[in-house]
Computed example of a mutant assay.
Amino acid sequence: MTQFISLNLVSAAIAFFLDDIFGDPRTGLHPVVLMGRLNRFLEKYLYGLGFAGGVILTAVSAALWTSAAAVLLHFAYGFHVYAFVLLNSVIIYTAVSAKSMKQHAMRVYEPLTAGDLPSAGHELSMIVSRDTQGMDEAAVVKSAVESVSENYTDGVLSPLLYAVFGGGAGAVFFKAVSTLDSMIGYKNEKYINFGRFAARLDDVLNFIPARLSVLIIAFSAPFCGMSMKNTLKTALKYRLAHDSPNSAHSMSAFAGALNLRLGGSVSYFGRVKDKPFMGDGTGEPAPEKIKEAVKLFETAAVFAVALCVAVYFVLRYYGGCPLACA
Rank of each mutant, 00 (worst) to 15 (best):
K142P: 01
V32S: 06
F51N: 11
A120L: 06
A83T: 15
G256M: 00
G279E: 12
I208G: 09
E43G: 08
I290H: 05
F22Y: 09
H249D: 03
R130T: 07
D24C: 08
A248E: 10
V32C: 10
A70E: 01
S100N: 07
V156Y: 00
M101R: 03
G48P: 00
G320M: 04
A199R: 13
G225H: 06
T66N: 04
F197I: 08
M1R: 06
I184M: 01
H249V: 07
F223I: 10
S220Q: 04
A70M: 01
N88D: 04
K187N: 10
A52D: 14
R211S: 11
P118H: 01
A257N: 00
S11D: 03
L73E: 00
L49M: 15
G225C: 04
L157N: 03
A248D: 05
F16R: 09
G166T: 08
K289T: 03
A241K: 01
V294R: 04
A218H: 05
A62N: 09
L112E: 12
A304S: 15
E110N: 12
P118T: 02
A221R: 00
V145K: 09
Q3G: 10
T282W: 09
C325P: 03
L124F: 08
A13N: 00
Q3S: 13
G264A: 06
L9W: 09
D243Y: 14
I92M: 06
T66W: 04
D274E: 07
L73Y: 01
L72S: 05
T94H: 05
G134F: 02
P31H: 14
N259Q: 00
V32K: 11
P31L: 09
H74E: 10
S158R: 08
E292C: 03
E137A: 05
G28N: 15
S252W: 02
S100C: 06
I14K: 11
A120E: 08
L49V: 05
V33F: 10
R26Y: 15
V272E: 11
A324L: 15
E43H: 11
L240W: 08
A326M: 15
Y312W: 05
V96I: 12
R130P: 00
A83P: 13
F41I: 08
Q133D: 09
R130Y: 03
P118A: 01
Y77M: 15
N188A: 05
P222Y: 12
N259T: 00
P111H: 03
T299D: 01
A176G: 07
K291R: 14
R271F: 03
T132Y: 02
A68C: 12
V141C: 12
I290G: 07
A293R: 05
K44R: 11
C321T: 13
V294K: 02
